[in-house]
């Protein structure tokens, strides 16, 4: 029997509804990717990504595309952590996220953790294209292995562009088969949770945020553009979330 992975795509389009709110003319997902609109707040629409099947498993290819059009405000979360698991199909799984935020629009992309279970192989890419006056808060958290489990192979790349110029390009590879030293003192030093939050706001051009250290495992770093990156490592997912929340709060609304 030939086993092949699942291919699934979810798409969200958000636009101003002309009455001070945000409409979602496209909200569609298939297979394991289900989308639900939840109660928003003010002009902001909210969407929950609900995992309707387990995965991604080996060989799966998931894609999530989100287009936030001029003036719209969207917040996307997920109902639970995503767990990368080994599958019957050969090869690694892929999870691609493509986010476009137009001028004057705002996106809060705040999914729950990605857990790399033992034996899994997953490659995640997140590409964000922003306009010069777009606003973004994006969080990504990776947990290496479930409790007392060796992690799978995980590689993730985050690319953020503002007005066509690349502001941030970061790739992290860890787990068995990753280039050497990934768990050593230069990269993760045995920490099992790693995450980052990037905040892009046009007003950072005039009022840049100062760099700040939060303990030995986290830093708030102004990028070479209208953005701040918080990078953190922690012993577990709970401690990681705590430090990322603290950093986000320090940046103000």
């Amino acid at each position: 029997m030939i086993v092949s992975g699942v291919r699934a795509t979810a798409r969200i389009v958000a636009r101003e509804d002309g009455r001070g709110g945000t409409a979602l003319p496209v909200l569609e997902g298939d297979g394991p990717l289900a989308l639900r609109r939840t109660r928003g707040s003010g002009s902001e629409a909210r969407v929950m990504l609900v995992g309707a099947m387990s995965g991604p498993l080996g060989g799966d290819h998931f894609t999530v595309e989100t287009d936030v059009q001029a003036g719209a405000r969207l917040r996307v979360g997920s109902a639970a952590a995503t767990i990368a698991l080994p599958g019957q199909a050969k090869g690694e799984a892929r999870y691609d996220v493509r986010l476009t935020v137009a001028d004057g629009a705002e996106l809060h992309w705040l999914p729950e953790q990605l857990i790399s279970a033992g034996g899994s192989e997953l490659c995640v890419t997140t590409h964000v294209d922003l306009g010069a006056t777009s606003r973004l808060v994006l969080r990504e958290e990776q947990v290496l292995g479930r409790v007392r489990e060796e992690p799978g192979r995980l590689s993730s790349r985050l690319v953020v562009r503002v007005a066509g110029r690349t502001l941030l390009d970061q790739e992290l590879a860890c787990g068995p088969g990753a280039p050497g030293g990934w768990d050593g003192p230069a990269v993760l030093a045995g920490h099992r949770a790693v995450g980052q939050v990037i905040v892009v706001r046009p007003e950072f051009v005039a009022e840049p945020v100062a760099a700040q250290v939060l303990g030995e495992g986290a830093a708030v770093m102004p990028l070479a553009g209208p953005a701040v990156l918080v990078t953190a490592v922690a012993a577990d997912a709970l401690l990681l979330r705590r430090v990322l929340d603290e950093a986000l709060e320090s940046l103000g609304p």
Partner: peptide, 22 residues
């Protein structure tokens, strides 16, 4: 173009540089 450059990152190198700068 330059997008083909590798982007391998090391969280603790970045964090430690900020700790040291402080």
């Amino acid at each position: 173009g330059v997008d083909a450059l590798p982007a391998a990152s090391a969280p603790l190198l970045e964090i430690s540089a900020e700790v040291h700068a402080a």
